[in-house]
């Protein structure tokens, strides 16, 4: 073992412990892959256009289509009619002249519509023939982004309030504790529903605000307790004696010593908020219709399953389950690495 010139800090030690934890490192790798995909989707490098209808309706996944060639063929025949004139039972199509005019005016659009559709897609297609694989990536982007940003917001709020309450104590503490009591008296999901009902405007930003502004309570409680404990420690008193201001003592001296608590709470919040986003979007109170998320995919999948089209459900459900499992294990590993006393 090499001789160390300075003693390793909390983070170096934690990183060393984490690196020895095989489960934790695997979880970290999986989460890292998801984040990389989200970044690439955000930059517009992959999954740029999920609304393109590249496959036939309910195109089966490639591996499934080989087994069920016959059924796939049949479903294709059923859908492949737009070229020929549709039997109208002797009726005149009242829109025929209008449609003809439109087609004459925009010939290139006709090409787009008539582009050959694929009979099967890597992970299948949905009702309109959207590629489920691209939808999953896009949905992951939305769900993870909402989870991350709202967790950051909630953690920031909770940390600030917890720091102020714990550090100043007395009536400031009473005030924040009262607010904490009020927010925890209402069950979380009910509060979120109530706010969603009042705001009545769907959108990713609204969703982030709802989750972030309601989810700060857990962080607040723990950070406040940490500040109560630390503010009378000698290093803080010494900093005060040297003339460090309150703000400096709170955020330069104490905050780094509570950062492990905050990090674990942050990742717990990410998991919780991803789950909440999925439920809200599923119920239709979350993302708007032109945004795809895991929740909106599950909503579509609910009706598809009855028709035997299981692939969108499997894709969205699996993508979410893998991420949440990995994130939970990473959180456990982080907690163990940052606070080795807890482990036993």
């Amino acid at each position: 073992m090499p001789i160390e010139r300075s003693s390793p800090g909390l983070w170096t030690l934690a990183w060393r412990r984490l690196r020895r934890d095989r489960v934790g490192m695997t979880a970290l790798l999986v989460v890292g892959c998801y984040l990389a995909v989200v970044m690439m989707a955000l930059m517009g490098w992959i999954a740029t256009d999920w609304t393109r209808e590249v496959g036939v309706n309910y195109a089966p996944p490639v591996f499934w289509a080989q087994d069920q060639d016959e059924t796939a063929q049949r479903s294709v025949i059923g859908n492949d009619t737009p070229d020929g004139p549709i039997a109208l039972y002797g009726l005149q199509d009242p829109l025929a002249p209008v449609l003809a005019a439109i087609r004459a005016q925009y010939p290139q659009d006709r090409d787009l519509v008539e582009a050959p559709r694929r009979l099967s897609l890597p992970l299948g297609g949905d009702k309109w023939g959207h590629d489920v694989w691209i939808k999953v990536i896009k949905g992951s982007e939305t769900s993870i982004l909402v989870g991350l940003v709202s967790a950051l917001l909630a953690t920031l709020l909770g940390t600030l309030m917890g720091a102020v309450a714990g550090y100043f104590g007395r009536w400031v503490d009473d005030g924040f504790n009262w607010l904490y009591g009020v927010f925890t008296a209402i069950p979380y999901l009910l509060l979120v529903f109530a706010i969603a009902a009042v705001l009545q405007q769907k959108g990713v930003v609204t969703l982030i605000l709802i989750l972030g502004l309601t989810g700060w309570t857990g962080v607040f409680r723990l950070v406040r307790a940490e500040y109560l404990k630390h503010k009378t420690r000698e290093y803080v008193l010494a900093a005060g004696a040297m003339g460090a201001s309150n703000t400096r003592r709170m955020f330069i001296h104490i905050l780094p010593n509570t950062s492990h608590v905050i990090l674990v709470q942050l990742s717990l919040n990410v998991i919780g908020f991803i789950k909440s986003e999925v439920i809200l979007s599923f119920l239709g109170f979350g993302v708007p219709v032109d945004v795809v998320s895991w929740g909106s995919m599950l909503n579509e999948a609910q009706n598809e399953l009855i028709l035997g089209k299981w692939w969108q459900l499997a894709a969205a459900g699996l993508a979410m389950a893998i991420l949440v499992t990995a994130f939970s294990m990473l959180t456990d590993a982080l907690r163990d690495a940052l606070d080795p006393k807890l482990k036993n």
Binding site: G295, A301, L305, I306, L313, A321, V324, T325, S328
Partner: peptide, 22 residues
């Protein structure tokens, strides 16, 4: 238990209702 917790209640309900009821 970590894995079971990670699957959304929605998935359990959708699949469970379809498989065991329908």
């Amino acid at each position: 238990s970590t894995v079971v917790m990670s699957i959304s209640l929605l998935v359990y309900i959708i699949v469970g209702q379809y498989v065991f009821a329908s």
